[in-house]
Design a protein around this nucleic acid. Structure first.
Lengths: 248, 248
DNA sequence: GTGCAGCTTTGATACAGATCAAGAACGAAT
DNA sequence: ATTCGTTCTTGATCTGTATCAAAGCTGCAC
């Protein structure tokens, strides 16, 4: 799961795996069909920096397949990931000319892009889409703020558990998986990327993952494939509200 | 500065101190004049929790005067502030029924409110306003993400310097102050509130403020009034990009 | 004034996580 | 199969910040 498709450039968006949150041609609205002629796909290789902070952004789009990270870097090299882009996530911001963060592909990825100016025109004519975008931005704001709690107040172990439960949840959403039985998924991030997300070092991440495994909160097959026998146990480890956390 | 006015409930919004970012009757658009009849002011006392996380939100509004914080709390009492509401900031979210965070007044404050449903109606009829709101939300998202870097990767001293420079900047914006000479402002937060914002303890905050004072990065009169003789020095302490940081 | 309560500072000590260092596991290229 | 380069794990030690504790400051109520 979460693996990349071989999407052809001519593929119609009806077949686009973007469904739930995406603003993408025809997936949610016929207005977007008007943009068909300015829609295109972009392909990026794993490890490639898709967008550099400060770049002119001439497009907006959605992730079709693959995974990317939004990161900020200080002059001395310290880096903090500020967001994770999974399939269906929106990239770019109407009304802004330049990128605020680096976008780095962590796997091969495909994005469904629109040239920015026509997209904005369409947005202005279509309150429905503008509202959708506001909603999505508010979701991201909530996610960022939840993450502030993780970064500011949680222990290393809680941080790892929080990250795992977020990935598990998103993976289930994307793949129509259930969250009541055991949950399995591939970690889309290296230990170092996890550390950058959590404000930790990669050594600490490794130790805490091992600890969670030893305490049977999770099982590992290889280094990347995780099974969570009991999600509520994991949420408890994350310090989240005991219930309700897995909804939405 | 940042002190509360004695705004009368009947005062017209032409005189409203909200100018720059606010979405407030007539300040930016005549469409908002239509809402005049559903506009009202709310007054809150220092220390009062204005909104509890999970509450039904039946209004949206702007802070007119005073300061409030957005905070998240874990079951065991650990708290993380996720935002600071200063005059001109927008409160509430169109399209959402319940509050996601506690809003706590840290000084006496006045808010300019609109009943939510009519405001949303108006928003739907007025793309211009919806766009303004999207822009504001994107600004907040950027602020939240910048704060993630502070929380995840900065040292205690850098955190304090970051907070001080943000407050200095916002204070200057609000009061048309300059940022090239020495800058003075009142800290609107207790040491404990600063700690909650920065993911530190109040003792560490106190120590680091003392250290910055000893190193003459700042001067203190009393415990709350700060003077920064050289903003670029402070920004350097914050670990920010040396220049440009004070713009916007 | 005196006393009290909330905020702040400062000191001593403990500990979680960083840092430094060495290897182990794994996959890809030869 | 061997080599190489990544990624990951584990160990030993160090350090920044938390924690625990006590006392100083400031303003308000009486």
């Amino acid at each position: 799961m979460l693996k990349q498709d071989n999407l052809s450039v001519t593929q119609d968006c009806h077949d686009c795996p973007i469904r739930h949150r995406a603003v993408c041609a025809r997936c949610e609205s016929d207005e977007l069909g008007l943009l068909e002629d300015i829609k295109y796909y972009r392909r990026f290789e794993a490890g490639q920096t898709v967008i550099w902070s400060g770049d002119r952004m001439d497009f907006v789009g959605s992730v079709v397949s693959g995974i990317a990270t939004l990161t900020q870097t200080m002059e001395d090299g310290r880096t903090q990931m500020v967001g994770l882009l999974l399939p269906s996530d929106f990239v770019g911001r109407p009304g802004r000319g330049t990128a605020a963060y680096d976008v780095v592909a962590t796997t091969d990825m495909v994005m469904c892009c629109f040239r920015k100016a026509p997209f904005e025109d369409m947005m202005n004519r279509t309150p429905h889409i503008a509202q959708r975008l506001l909603e999505m931005t508010l979701d991201e704001l909530d996610a960022a703020r939840e993450w502030m709690l993780v970064l500011g107040r949680k222990t290393a172990r809680e941080k790892i558990a929080s990250l795992l439960s977020i990935i598990a949840r998103r993976d289930a959403t994307l793949n129509l998986g259930a969250l009541d039985g055991p949950v399995s998924f591939d970690l889309p991030l290296t230990r170092e990327a996890m550390a950058d997300y959590l404000g930790l070092t990669l050594e600490t991440v490794s130790r805490q993952v091992s600890a969670l495994k030893k305490d049977q909160v999770i099982t590992l097959e290889g280094k990347r494939h995780v099974t969570v026998p009991d999600m509520s146990r994991l949420l408890e480890e994350a310090g989240d509200d005991t219930d309700g956390g897995m909804l939405v």
